[in-house]
Amino acid sequence: MDTTLLLLADGRFPAGGHAHSSGLEAAVAAGRVAGLAEVEAFLRGRLTTAGPVAAAFAAAACQGISPAVLDVELDARTPSPAARLASRRQGRALLRAGRATWPSARYDDVPHHPDGCHQPIALGLTAAAAGLTAEQTALVAAYGVLTGPASAAVRLLGLDPYQVQAMLARLATACDEISSDAVAAAAGGPPSDLPSASAPLADIHAETHATWEVRLFAS
């Protein structure tokens, strides 16, 4: 399944991620992120807050936990309406690509919501359709939390792409740990006990960003 794993994790998989900076654009505009060092701190922050939540929910969805229940739980962990919308839009895009790539009855359980299905749940269902394990699913989720804004940082700040890749390599071990911890968290207990790490500033950034008239990224 290694190739399948790489296909789903690949930034070129057409799941709409390129249009999202996951709050980085707002952080840059606020002057909180200006260079490589701040980007690394930003990514560590994302990895330790959004990372466990996304990875655990993706793993749980992959393992067959009710997507409708997970949907409610993720809403509860996403206080910012703008962040909810961004997650649902990315989930909808991922499902569009997933359904076309790995047709499966697993998608039948997708919760109906006008804005789409939360991205980690969509990822879990797509990964299950592709035949991936919960471990692989969590890894794709954590990896996406890391590489999405890293790619946006290269475009927004004109950073040296080699230095950004070296930074991602430095974060690889942390990403591995986050994903394996998330698998353990998803394995036992009710969905209400899934990770709920958050970052108030990320929610504030998301809300501020949504009010801009002019922006390059959708989130």
């Binding site: 709409g16 909808r92 569009r96």
Partner: peptide, 11 residues
């Protein structure tokens, strides 16, 4: 957005 990953436009 118009060629490699058209999801936002399709949405």
């Amino acid at each position: 957005a118009i060629r490699d990953d058209i999801s936002a436009n399709l949405d």
